[in-house]
Simulated assay, not measured.
Amino acid sequence: MFYELLYSLRDYFSPFNVFRYITFRTSLSAMTALIVTFIIAPYVIRWLKKISMTQQIRDDGPKTHYSKAGTPTMGGIIILISITFSMLMWGNFRNIYICVVMTSLLGFGAIGLWDDYLKVVKRNPKGLKAMYKFGLQLLLALVIGIFLYTNPKDPYNDVLSIPFFKKWLFDLGYFYIPFSVFVIVGSSNAVNLTDGIDGLAIGLVAIATIANVALVYISGHAQFAKYLQVLYLPGIGELTVFCGAMLGASLGFLWYNSYPAEVFMGDVGSLSLGGALGTLAVITKHEIVLAVVGGIFVVETISVVMQVMSFKLTGKRIFRMAPIHHHFELKGWPEPKVIVRFWIAGIILALFSLATLKLR
């Protein structure tokens, strides 16, 4: 958008030619989102307090969380504003993949906003009914999946790529549509489940986004993709700019969400960021790598599934509380220790995911 105006002036001022480079705009995108977050966050936090958009704490949760009652929630609005503004400045909306990932981000954000509104304003602890919430997520992901499947510019629109093996490509045919829906919706809800203690989810999102910057840029660069034996997908390099915006917004929000949190992002933040990560994975054909990069999100989700199944089948619980980060809290780990150790695990998994590129 704005960068196109500056780039169009390159014939009159040659330094403006630098705006053609994705790496340069990615840096600007990250810095812009970070600065916008720092500027608007204090005002949004005060506004959320003023209108009583504050967190309700579960009675059956860790007792250490009772002190969090009254903390503003729905702070994910800050993240969405920062990313959107940054992309309007430095993103190329003529690129169809930018439009798709922004649709995912804002679409899942709208679902989360509705859910948060019912929980906080209407004082409905369950928020949006599961049938409607999950149904809307499926519908949005289905639209995205069908569009990507029918995209004539994508030579691998129904292919599943297996990490570590350069020639392991599986043609899923029409089954790729429900598979993409599973990845996007699963990623969205996995981040949502992880968002239970200060800074944990947003820190892991930032780590996963850094890994995605490398994955997206390489997949969209013909020479790098050929050298590393990954699928070259023309046009997706522009998504690096989006990753930069998401990283900047995540780091900026972490400043206010770190322990002890001044604001929670709520479903409007967690669902949107998770949906965006899932959509990035589907577009770049790194769906399996996403499960590695976001390994902590996967573990958190599995812990909930195991807990529910165990209780229904045997009447006994496997963990003291699910998701699993609460289990460690109830074991006596201080909240900051749980957060940092999960972050460390997330960094290790992100590095391992990048190793899959070279090991092909």
Rank of each mutant, 00 (worst) to 15 (best):
A211D: 09
K331M: 03
L9P: 02
S161T: 04
L148Y: 13
T54H: 04
T32E: 00
N92W: 13
K63V: 09
M1Q: 05
T301A: 05
R25S: 04
V241R: 05
G203Q: 13
S272Q: 07
G266A: 09
P163N: 12
I146L: 05
Y176R: 09
L233A: 15
Q137P: 01
V159R: 15
G75S: 06
Y3S: 00
L247I: 11
A355H: 06
A110G: 09
L28V: 12
N151T: 00
K153V: 15
V120R: 01
L231N: 01
E329W: 12
S86E: 06
I218Q: 13
D195H: 04
V183D: 07
G135Y: 06
M246E: 10
V44Y: 10
S29H: 12
N257M: 06
M102A: 13
Q56E: 14
V299S: 07
L254A: 03
D158F: 14
Y66I: 07
G61L: 02
T314H: 07
W47P: 02
V268H: 14
Y43P: 02
N189A: 04
S272A: 15
A276T: 09
G295Y: 13
K153Y: 13
P260K: 12
P334H: 01
Y259P: 13
F38M: 15
H221Q: 14
L139T: 12
I302S: 15
F108Y: 10
F328N: 06
D59Q: 01
V101Q: 02
F319S: 06
C99N: 15
Y117Q: 04
K129G: 08
L247H: 10
I324L: 15
A245S: 14
G252M: 14
L106C: 00
F319N: 04
G75R: 05
G107D: 12
L88R: 06
T23C: 11
F242D: 07
T301G: 02
Y227H: 11
L172Y: 11
L351C: 11
Y12G: 12
L140C: 13
L148A: 12
G269N: 02
A291C: 09
Y259S: 14
R320H: 13
F319L: 07
M309W: 11
L113C: 05
V191C: 07
F108H: 05
D154Q: 03
T240E: 12
F328A: 09
I184D: 08
S187C: 14
V268A: 14
F108Q: 04
N257P: 07
G252N: 15
A291R: 02
K316I: 02
W47F: 05
M306Y: 13
L113F: 13
G315Y: 11
